[in-house]
Amino acid sequence: MDQLIFFSLSALTLLSGLLTVFSRKSMYSVLSLIFCLFTVAGHYILLNAHFLAITHIIVYAGAIMVLFLFVVMLLNLNTTSDKSKAFYFRAAAVSGAGMLFLVLIASLKSTTLGAYYAPTDTGMGVVEHVGKRLFTDYLLPFEISSILFLSAMIGSVLLAKKEKK
């Protein structure tokens, strides 16, 4: 049962990832990436990481992809065709990524992970446990990341502001 869910989710993930890359219109790319992120959230649930699944949906589908959608619609990029370079450029891109894939698969194929059989279900991924870790062991990075967010917010407002002529 788990394997069946894993296979169908993985097929959807990879398919929507490929659609993200190869869609002609930017809008379709954004929508298929949203779908891809939802399937990744499904993988998180399958791995008993419930807190991360919810956070993933909220942060990615709720914030990041909405930002992408807004920018695509605001800049009216949906009609701009991806004026491609020559054929050799595309062939080089595909073969480069394919060779990276081959090398990674070939090197990871022979790894033995004997100690890890199954996802542990010790209530590790629930809000209570992750929150406890976050507010005790990782309190300083947590607070620093809030400063990072603040600086990112100020920076993006400054960057996107219209310059005075």
């Binding site: 490929l18 890359v21 595309r90 080089a92």
Partner: peptide, 20 residues
């Protein structure tokens, strides 16, 4: 994960639109 990562690399190399 390797497949998904390589799809991402392919997109970065393949597409010319900065948003994609």
């Amino acid at each position: 994960s390797t497949s998904l990562f390589c799809i991402g690399v392919l997109g970065v190399l393949f597409r010319r639109n900065a948003i994609i």
